[in-house]
């Protein structure tokens, strides 16, 4: 009896703690949506107005009229999808090579790939910017890479630096080591299948879950990535992605007087993708966790 009661109390305490944390996690977003429907007067009112008396839905058209969200969304979508596709494919192949083949420099290459995770992204920004501007014969450049702007005004510049990802390779390798026994490969080889055929016909179908996980993580990460697109869009505004667009919101509206419009813009940028991403919680977390669990 006593023990049961103790259990009940501890359970209630856990619920309370989790509830406080849970509320603190979503309250900012609830406030965001509710405030995006306020009038300016309600926004600064004292005592504060938590829920607008009459939802100002026309805040949204006002924002959309001034801020090209459609362009931001389509840029983000095209870039993130392309990156995701490339990362998934390159990770599958490279991960498999590391997991199931032996070759010279294997250990060296693998540690090198992994150690790149520790390189700060900024180290690449200036050289890559320079590099992309100097690609010969593209974007008005001469054969020596001078005179024009290279790839700087093409979406490729947002995609190319991300088509291989060490995490993805590592994740795929873990999966192949754990889930695909060598015997399976041997059996297929005895049947006379070529290595490439084995990979495409046999391995890829089995590794769908891990590839899906890699794809989801890559997509979400790329979708939220700000730094490189920000640098690029300062000279090529037509390439602005969603995070860059949201950063510009404060510039499109005077932040001292149009808070509700900025918040409406943030709502447009945050809420729809989040509602989709949240469905992938399990894959995302287990994917990231997998790289950590079995090292």
């Amino acid at each position: 009896m006593n023990r049961k009661r103790k259990r009940l109390i501890s359970r209630i305490i856990i619920y309370i703690i989790l509830a406080i944390i849970g509320i603190s996690m979503i309250l900012p977003f609830v406030w965001l949506v509710s405030s995006s429907l306020k009038t300016r007067a309600e926004f600064v009112a004292k005592p504060p107005v938590w829920i607008p008396e009459k939802a100002q839905w026309n805040n949204y058209p006002k924002v959309i009229k001034k801020v090209p969200f459609l362009k931001y969304y389509s840029n983000s979508l095209i870039v993130s999808l392309s990156v995701t596709l490339c990362v998934t494919i390159t990770s599958a192949f490279a991960g498999f090579a590391f997991a199931k083949y032996n070759f010279k420099f294997k250990q060296f290459l693998f540690s090198f790939f992994l150690s790149t995770i520790m390189l700060p992204a900024f180290l690449f920004v200036v050289p890559e910017y320079f590099m992309f501007s100097k690609i010969p014969l593209i974007g008005g450049n001469s054969i020596w890479g001078t005179g024009g702007y290279g790839l700087l005004h093409s979406r490729l510049v947002l995609i190319l630096p991300f088509i291989v990802n060490s995490w993805g390779i590592f994740l795929a390798r873990q999966f192949y080591i754990i889930s695909i026994p060598d015997e399976l490969l041997q059996a297929a080889r005895i049947d006379g299948a070529s290595e490439f055929k084995i990979f495409i016909k046999l391995i890829i179908p089995i590794s769908k879950p891990v590839l899906a996980t890699i794809a989801i993580i890559t997509f979400i990460t790329q979708w939220n990535y700000l730094f490189w697109p920000l640098v690029i869009s300062s000279s090529a505004p037509e390439l602005s992605t969603l995070p860059v667009g949201m950063k510009m919101l404060a510039m499109a509206f005077d932040p001292a007087r149009n808070q509700q419009l900025i918040l409406a813009g943030l709502t447009i940028g945050i809420i729809p993708p989040s509602l989709i991403f949240i469905l992938f919680q399990k894959y995302y977390v287990s994917g990231i966790g997998m790289t950590g669990l079995k090292e």
Partner: peptide, 15 residues
């Protein structure tokens, strides 16, 4: 708990 990790940090900062 998952929500904050799928929102761009820039917009989290702005909110």
């Amino acid at each position: 708990l998952f929500i904050p990790s799928i929102v761009p940090l820039i917009s989290i900062g702005m909110v």
